[in-house]
Design a protein around this nucleic acid. Structure first.
Length: 503
RNA sequence: CGGGAUGUGGCUCAGCUUGGUAGAGCGCUGCGUUCGGGACGCAGAGGUCGGAGGUUCAAAUCCUCUCAUCCCGACCA
């Protein structure tokens, strides 16, 4: 069995990832640097993610809206910390018209068509939205506002990777307005918990929840909550963030409301988002050298049938059998949606080719139906994460398939959790800390004491490339939240924090 | 934005040193045989050699510039 031209993980994790994304037909590089084409197979995963998250947002009282792509430059000057965080990576629109090149062929920018005020392509929408909220909010009766939008944003990144960091990406951004600090805090934590549940229950990716250090928090936030996942090269991915913005944007955009007591106060805000980066995280968390391994709840194809027959007559029978089984599955509801199936009737491809192809594309269960099965009244079922062929009677097939999907969903989460826990270390001396982040096959989560200063954080990053991923919400192990001494400086530390190399 | 590498049919690459009619494998199209872990035969189609200048009788090949991609750093969801 070949690896189908995918660089093995053991040889180079990053090449493995690049090969896989392209060969599994998820995405392609585009004509524009740093941008990508999300192909149907990759987009199908995004659609499933969107649907799940959108339901959770709606269930918790949020509504969707849409705000414009363009941000007047002046908006970005309003909140100093915020603009500093994004200024270096903004795309700017300066003109609004092209003309035929007077000196030759093609078109050139019309110098006459210069915009009076340049427009920034949104790197995030806080400023546009808060400029709007100012018009919407007068009284405490207008609050809270709980709006989400699904959109694209642009951050002009120097170094990009498909799904993990692209110049343009798709995401959702929630923007809420509240009367009190406490209510905004509750909102930020509510969303954080939605993100955690989505990661674990849908993506089968266990995540740490925590607070970002001052260095790592969102520019413009009072504080930032995050979910952090470990992937198979033991590096850490920030998979989602939820910000308590305090009154920063309300002050920058002068958004006040009259309280029940008649007092004028600034509004409290949150913002929160997850992006197509989740797809990259999903791939890196579970997949192997043979291709994608997707958790059933997010797999575009959950059960694929490969009917086998060397002659027309056998083929007719195996096709009919596969259609019948697929149809039965489609009428079953699993986690609230129909089971997604496919009967692979491509007659130019051999069964062996199809086996490899569907492993590459991450179908969860593959069902082989050949002449031998027809005689015996069975089919052969192979689960993508286990790879073993199991002969199953046609009679109990649907129940078997459903049980296997459920079991696979759980198994992936457990495996990922086991992997993460096996690479999470409590480290109390500097030599050990450095050793963890040095050399081949190194890495993981270092749960260590830190003296709380930005200088120490930066020094550690400089020496090891590891950064503080989060200050956990709850201790990962008993004692983690007790005082100790900083792993680098030996100064007092209030509690342990999590260090890792990050994407 | 620095350092390195690479741009030649859809894909992977050879040809470039030493200038002289653009090649291979895979894929693609047609027909036939195949079909339980990437099948085979025969016949076909497909390329302004990333782009622009220059040198030359002649440029994929030499020179200059430019664009893009990948890897490694600095920056970031």
């Amino acid at each position: 069995m070949s690896n189908l031209g995918i660089t093995p993980q053991s040889e180079s994790f990053s090449e493995w990832y690049n090969d896989l994304v392209v060969k599994a037909d998820m995405a392609d590089h585009s004509a524009v640097r740093g941008c990508m084409v999300i192909k149907p197979h990759g987009y199908a995963i995004w659609e499933l993610m969107q649907r799940a998250l959108d339901d959770m947002f709606k269930d918790s009282g949020h509504v969707n809206a849409y705000f414009p792509l363009f941000v007047p430059k002046s908006f970005l000057s309003r909140e100093a910390a915020h603009v500093e965080g994004f200024a270096k990576e903004c795309a700017v629109v300066t003109h609004y018209r092209l003309i035929n090149d007077p000196d030759g062929v093609g078109v050139v920018v019309d110098p006459e068509a210069k915009l009076e005020e340049e427009l920034i392509i949104r790197p995030t929408s806080e400023t546009v939205i808060w400029n709007t909220y100012k018009k919407w909010i007068q009284s405490y009766r207008d609050l809270p506002i709980l709006i989400n939008q699904w959109a694209n944003v642009v951050r002009w990144e120097m170094r990009t990777r498909l799904f993990l960091r692209t110049a343009e990406f798709l995401w959702q951004e929630g923007h809420t307005a509240h009367a009190t600090y406490g209510e905004a805090e509750e909102e930020a934590l509510l969303i954080l918990d939605i993100y955690r549940r989505f990661a674990e229950e849908w993506m089968a990716v266990p995540v740490l929840t925590g607070v970002k250090s001052e260095n790592e928090k969102f520019a413009g936030a009072d504080h930032t909550y995050c979910i952090e996942a470990m992937v198979q090269d033991r590096r850490c991915v920030q998979a989602g963030t939820s910000h308590h913005l305090g009154q920063n944007f309300a002050k920058a955009f002068d958004v006040k409301f009259q309280s029940q007591e008649g007092k004028e106060e600034y509004v409290y805000a949150t913002s929160w988002g997850v992006s197509t980066r989740l797809i990259g995280t999903l791939i890196m968390a579970h997949s192997d050298d043979r291709g994608l391994i997707l958790p059933p709840r997010l797999a575009p194809i959950q059960v694929v049938f490969v009917p086998i027959g060397r002659d027309e007559e056998t083929r007719t029978k195996t096709y009919a059998c596969a259609d019948r089984l697929a149809d039965a599955l489609r009428h079953l509801s699993w986690h609230g949606s129909r089971i997604r199936t496919k009967v692979d009737k491509r007659d130019k491809e051999s069964p062996g080719f199809k086996f490899n192809d569907w492993e590459l594309r991450g179908a969860c269960l593959r069902v082989e139906i050949g002449p031998r099965d027809l005689e015996a009244g069975t089919c052969v079922v192979v689960r993508r994460d286990l790879g073993e062929k199991v002969t199953v009677p046609l009679d109990g097939f649907a129940a078997h398939a459903e049980a296997e999907l459920a079991s696979m969903q759980g198994a992936l989460l457990e495996r990922a959790r086991g992997f993460r826990d096996a690479h999470t270390y409590r480290i109390d001396n500097w030599a050990e800390f450095q050793a963890l982040f040095t050399g081949e096959g190194s890495g993981g989560f270092a749960v260590a004491h830190w003296d709380g200063t930005a200088e120490t954080e930066e020094k550690i990053a400089e020496l090891t490339k590891a950064t503080i991923r989060c200050i956990p919400m709850t201790p990962l192990a008993p004692g983690d939240d007790e005082p100790g001494t900083c792993v680098l400086t030996g100064k007092p530390s209030a509690r342990r924090v999590v260090f890792a190399k990050a994407y």
